[in-house]
């Protein structure tokens, strides 16, 4: 079993097709939707965490690509310069994934990269510019 994150991009005509249903049913892949921007009739994008056997993941991705859905591994991550952080909390205002939270006792910023969906909203939200997008794998 493997767990990996992917960015899916949908062409306009595919917005209504039940891809996730097929991934689950036909390829036995477990899906965790991290971020969804899909509007019927328009292009959309999804950030998914897919969990399944290596073969099933490969076949599932091939199935998506046959249907004009691009599927790229999510190879960006957010880095945080915690030494300079003043724990003002500005970034927590925009982090809906819950990756950035204030410790309710000490009121210091906590960053949990596992929860980060790389929405990038924290990058402009930090007044000290402490978040960077890291494109390496």
């Amino acid at each position: 079993m493997q767990k990996k994150r992917y960015v899916l991009k949908f062409p306009p005509q595919s917005g209504d097709q039940p891809f996730s249903y097929h991934l689950v049913k036909d390829f036995d892949i477990r899906i965790n939707i991290l971020r969804a921007e899909v509007w019927p009739g328009k292009t959309g994008s999804l950030v998914l965490e897919l969990e399944g056997t290596t073969t099933n993941l490969k076949n599932g991705i091939a199935y998506l690509q046959e249907n004009q859905v691009s599927c790229e591994p999510l190879n960006k991550k957010i880095t945080w310069d915690n030494a300079r952080c003043i724990s003002c909390g500005n970034c927590t205002a925009v982090c809906f994934a819950g990756a950035l939270q204030m410790d309710p006792e000490k009121w210091e910023l906590q960053f949990d990269p596992e929860k980060c969906i790389v929405c990038e909203l924290c990058v402009p939200a930090c007044p000290l510019n402490l978040f960077k997008i890291d494109f390496r794998e």
Binding site: C88, M102, W107
Partner: peptide, 25 residues
């Protein structure tokens, strides 16, 4: 505000500070 959620006009809203309580302490 510190609990992380307030209710305004019947709507629950997530809160965040913008000044540093840890530094103030």
């Amino acid at each position: 505000l510190r609990s992380g959620e307030i209710e305004v006009q019947g709507k629950k809203i997530r809160t965040a500070p913008v000044s540093s309580l840890s530094k103030a302490r």
